[in-house]
């Protein structure tokens, strides 16, 4: 469904991704794991068009994404829940959700989708007129996820959704991601919380200094000696 083929990405003269390839099939949860600076966020930013690959291609259902303008990507059914949430902090909860459904068919279904998001996150519903910058960290993450869902994506990408959250909330976020998949969405997730991510992921890729070094089933990876030593601290 989502296919990344041999992408090479640079920041200026510095190459960050080297021939990265992987694919995500419909209904899967696929995880990208790796250390800080391995290029995980860069990969997501390239898929959503904020960065351009120097070579290689990104396709969704066979349609190339890397040549499209970033603002058109959302209409093809890709949502990106960015690292550190990146909410519009001076807007209300509801306005942030509106921003998620600016384009395409999502705009027509805004009202229904909003009710769906509010039923998924009742706490957001209570705070719909509150400025998003005043929400707690967990609520902000929920809003960021909700904003991503507002675009009615086929594929939703999460960048470090558990970052900076209390352990109890981390569990909640992972439950929500599982639920989103059960509702028929395809998930690509980037995480440093490797153990919990591998537990819910169907498949995972390990990214090391900008290269894919391992691929496999989530559960198998949990038992892999290299992964254990490098990422699970066992």
């Amino acid at each position: 469904m989502l296919e990344i083929k041999n992408i090479n990405v640079f920041y200026g003269d510095l190459q960050v991704l080297w021939d990265v390839s992987f694919q995500v099939e419909p209904g899967e949860i696929v995880a990208l794991i790796g250390a800080n600076g391995a290029g995980k966020s860069t990969t997501l930013r390239t898929i959503s068009g904020l960065l351009r690959p120097k070579s290689g291609e990104v396709t969704l259902d066979g349609q190339p994404l890397h040549s499209l303008e970033p603002y058109d990507l959302i209409t093809l059914g890709i949502a990106h829940v960015p690292e550190a949430r990146r909410l519009f902090v001076e807007m209300t909860v509801e306005e942030n959700l509106d921003m998620g459904s600016l384009r395409g068919p999502a705009k027509l279904k805004r009202k229904e989708t909003k009710e769906m998001v509010f039923s998924l996150f009742p706490r957001l519903s209570e705070r719909r007129r509150q400025q998003s910058g005043t929400l707690s960290g967990g609520e902000q993450q929920m809003l960021a996820i909700g904003r991503g869902l507002m675009g009615l994506p086929k594929v939703i990408m999460f960048d470090e959704p558990s970052l900076g959250l209390a352990p109890i909330l981390v569990g909640e976020i992972f439950e929500i991601i599982k639920r989103i998949r059960e509702e028929g969405k395809t998930v690509l997730i980037v995480e440093q919380n490797v153990r919990q991510t591998l537990a819910i992921a169907d498949r995972a890729y390990v990214l090391e200094t900008g290269k894919v070094t391992m691929a496999g089933k989530g559960r198998d990876m949990l038992n892999d000696e290299h992964v254990k030593a490098a990422y699970l601290g066992v």
């Binding site: 990106h80 960015p82 909410l87």
Partner: peptide
């Protein structure tokens, strides 16, 4: 950047 991700030109 976040605006761009939302499909804002």
């Amino acid at each position: 950047d976040a605006a761009m991700l939302m499909g804002v030109h």
